[in-house]
């Protein structure tokens, strides 16, 4: 029983996309640009040369936010989308009817259709793979050369992520929507 979340020291991201590759590899995500569980977002620098705002050109890795109040879960007609015992938002592919409501309801564009099962798929925090094998890190975290990602139990006060969230300022995306994301961006 844990409450998993992830902190991202996003300013360290160098856009190498190793996490995108590791996720596909580890979790057997379908090939193709549309089929991604995680992605590295980027902002083009704002302003006009020579007054470019370099600080605005950050890279921003993202994925499913594992919302505590997940709109995708609320709208699922068959409860195929559920919170597992570790508060990870998961999809039971046996129950998913592919109505695509969750894809529309998720404010973070975190879901896509897996054509092999004709159901919706998304980030699982490697629950089916690495966590099931007893490992304590996710594939994206493990591979990151600049250690952007820290995955861990938010309920454990001694975990690295709890320590980070206590000592570093952070924000979450679209928090005004009341989704209570469990992805935290460190500033």
């Amino acid at each position: 029983m844990a409450r998993y979340g992830m902190a991202l020291d996003y300013k360290n991201c160098i856009n190498c996309k190793a996490c995108e590759v590791a996720c596909k590899e580890e979790n057997g995500v379908e090939l193709g640009a549309e089929k991604h569980r995680i992605w590295v977002g980027g902002n083009n620098p704002e302003g006009q040369w020579p007054f470019l705002d370099i600080a605005s050109a950050a890279f921003m890795p993202s994925q499913c936010q594992h919302c505590e109040d997940a709109p995708c879960q609320e709208v699922c007609p068959t409860n195929a989308t559920y919170y597992d015992e570790n508060h990870v938002v998961r999809v039971d592919s046996d129950k998913c009817i592919l109505c695509s409501y969750c894809m529309n309801a998720c404010p973070y564009d975190a879901r896509y259709v897996d054509d092999r099962t004709m159901t919706v798929d998304k980030c699982t925090f490697c629950s089916d793979t690495r966590l099931a094998r007893g490992e304590t890190t996710t594939a994206c975290q493990n591979t990151c050369p600049t250690k952007v990602r820290t995955f861990g139990d938010l309920d454990d006060p001694n975990s690295e992520i709890s320590e980070l969230l206590r000592t570093r300022e952070h924000f979450s995306l679209k928090s005004h929507l009341g989704t209570n994301p469990k992805l935290f961006y460190l500033t």
Binding site: E74, V75, I97, L98, C99, M118
Partner: peptide
């Protein structure tokens, strides 16, 4: 349009998503 209409009829009954407008509508 729905990927699995038969499955829908089964799980609409077995595990109804009562917070879902699609469940109520259907």
């Amino acid at each position: 349009e729905i990927g699995h209409p038969v499955r829908m009829m089964i799980y609409n009954v077995l595990t109804p998503g009562l917070t879902s407008a699609i469940w109520w509508m259907g």
